Amino acid sequence: MSNSDNSRSRPLANKRLSRSGDAGPKKPSIKVRTAKQGGSERRSANKSAPYSGSKPRKPLTMHPRNPHQGRYDMEALVKTLPQLEQYLTTNPRGEQTIDFADSRAVVCLNQALLKHHYGVEGWDIPAGYLCPPIPGRADYIHYAADLLNKYQLNKEPVRVLDIGTGANLIYSLLGACQYQWNMLASDIDETAIRAANDILTANPALQHKIEVRQQPDDRSVFRNLIQPGERFALSVCNPPFYASAEEAQAENLRKQRNLSRHQQKRQQPEAAPAAPADRSDPWGKAKVNAEKQRNFGGQNNELWCEGGELAFLKRMTRESQQYGQQVAWFTSLISKQENVPLMLEYLKAQGVKKTEVVKMAQGQKISRFIAWCF
């Protein structure tokens, strides 16, 4: 990033940030840092509870360094990737958009975003695998970078562990492209590993920045993955959110119903006919067959695990104890607000030294990640 860019949007880590709660015999005072309009911060603390779930007083916005502010510039994206034009439609306000219920349109939009903003070529995923919303994923990476800046862990070379990278490889791509981090991307799924390696094959310039490694034990997070002598400044993770396949399916049906109702209200031109599958695309036929599946996809191991998000994060915490000298900061998204105080208490019981909860916002969606170190 250039000096001019730094002057335009100073990293939050260079501003006054909240302190982390220290584990100890006394109940820690946990601060939650969050961004105001324009990239400034406010500090909030609840003395009677380790985490305050109250709504912010002012609307939150994306991280100031996130390039995906406001509406997508569809004209610029089409110039970058002409294939996107076939999926464009117009909303009642006359603005160009896509049908987010169409999985092919969502994948094509991601291809255009990655190529336009990050120079990533040939990005693709197998049918049915998780197709990530890139603005939110970018927010996580930028706030994680602020965490490293705050604790002066941003000195080159920075090595970051991407837990459960999936077929999309998104966090490793963003970390390597935005901050030149050296990424170790891991997953238990063989198909996801092959897809991630295919993305790297299409991007030779990133091959020396990203290593893809399969986790051989589907019951482990760090064990059998981190090797003796390896050091990481940070780990990132998008954990399985649901406790069962049925719960994941019910949530998907709810989202599909909402999308359908939204589409029925829109008065838009008739959609263009679907383009035939590209024979040179190994997943082209599969994508056509999977058109009516989840618009953002997701395999079982990406979406759910026994006990759900909280059980996964507790397992991650227990394993992280063994690697506290090899990973400076462990972090993970945490989707359910009610799980935050439970995790903070659990982390305290496991003897963590410091914790951080970082709140993020993308449009109407509020998300957060939790961080801890030993």
Rank of each mutant, 00 (worst) to 15 (best):
T80Q: 04
L77M: 04
Y242I: 04
G229T: 04
P50Q: 11
A35K: 02
K26M: 00
Q321C: 01
S335W: 02
A76Q: 03
F222E: 09
R213T: 11
N197V: 06
Q322V: 01
I334R: 05
P82M: 12
S4N: 11
L81H: 09
L259R: 15
N110I: 03
I170F: 02
G175R: 00
E190P: 15
A35Y: 04
F100Y: 10
V107D: 15
Q326L: 01
K359S: 02
R93Y: 05
N252P: 00
A13D: 14
N301D: 13
A23K: 10
E319I: 08
A233H: 12
G166Y: 11
L113E: 07
A23G: 14
N339P: 03
K31S: 08
N224L: 04
G307M: 06
Q321Y: 00
K15A: 13
Y51F: 14
R231C: 02
F232L: 01
I134M: 06
S103E: 12
N168Y: 03
A144D: 09
V107P: 05
K292Q: 13
Q37S: 06
A167C: 12
A127I: 08
K353Q: 10
P132Q: 10
C131N: 15
V32W: 10
G363I: 15
I163M: 06
R266M: 15
I210Y: 13
D162N: 09
R294D: 13
G21Q: 06
D218M: 00
E270T: 03
E75F: 06
V78H: 09
R315E: 04
Q350S: 14
G298R: 11
G21V: 03
K36T: 12
N46W: 07
R10I: 13
S172Q: 08
R254P: 01
K336C: 01
S7E: 15
H262E: 04
